[in-house]
């Protein structure tokens, strides 16, 4: 369970959000809503561990209920930033996926990587082994990042505009993996302008401006 308590953050110039509290249990999906500039991406970066909150706490518990928080929640989170994919642009798709998986301690075989790439339509030998990422299109890069997400094997996903640049097939694939993830007791925090991929999934909405959560 991810427990966020009274999270507050602002820049010198303005306060972004105050005293936001939310609990995310296995199988739950929370969508973060707010107008442009409300601080949704900043909120996500704080949960992911890139920024420190000014007030409030973030704790991750291994089970469905609170108990002893883990010492390093990064072991249980996978973050997907908006407008970036976190890929080494001069290396290939396979090299990138291998690196990020190894860093998590998942010594994935070629076969597992190819299967993930297949889901996202990137399994062609030239595309996956011989093309540097900077030659990929926006949509391809995003799909690769989603393949990494799939391979991460962590319970909690933090997704910031995950479907940016995806075509219809990509949207469908995303919906499917999100559904499987939630069914397997995974949890997800998502920021997305387009709510279509979340249709049919049990979504709660957190309004960042008010802190209210609605079903």
């Amino acid at each position: 369970m991810l427990k966020i308590r009274e999270l507050t953050f602002g820049f010198r110039s303005r306060r972004l959000f105050e005293k936001i509290s939310v609990e995310l249990r296995p199988g739950e999906l929370v969508h973060i809503a707010g107008p442009n500039g409300a601080g949704k991406s900043t909120f996500m970066s704080i949960i992911a561990g890139i920024l420190a909150p000014q007030k409030g706490t973030i704790e991750f518990f291994p089970g469905a209920e609170a108990g002893t928080p883990v010492d390093d929640r990064r072991k249980y989170l996978e973050y997907l930033p908006a407008e970036a994919n976190g890929m080494y642009t001069k290396m290939s798709a396979v090299e990138n996926l291998k690196f990020w998986s190894n860093l998590r301690g998942r010594d994935v075989s070629g076969r597992v990587i190819f299967e993930a790439l297949e889901v996202w339509g990137l399994n062609h030998p030239v595309i996956r082994d011989q093309l540097a990422i900077d030659k990929f299109s926006t949509g391809m890069k995003r799909r690769l990042a989603l393949a990494r997400l799939q391979l991460s094997g962590v319970p909690c996903w933090l997704l910031d505009e995950p479907i940016y640049g995806l075509d219809t097939k990509g949207l469908e694939a995303f919906h499917n993996i999100l559904k499987s993830h939630l069914n397997a007791k995974g949890m997800c925090l998502v920021v997305s302008h387009d709510l279509k991929p979340l249709e049919g999934l049990p979504t709660q909405t957190l309004d960042l401006a008010t802190g209210r959560i609605s079903k």
């Binding site: 970066s45 992911a48 561990g49 890139i50 990064r74 989170l77 996978e78 973050y79 930033p81 970036a84 994919n85 976190g86 890929m87 080494y88 642009t89 990020w100 860093l103 998590r104 990422i133």
Partner: peptide
């Protein structure tokens, strides 16, 4: 591509 930031979330 924000690799540095992503490394910090790992």
């Amino acid at each position: 591509d924000k690799v540095f930031d992503l490394l910090r979330t790992y």
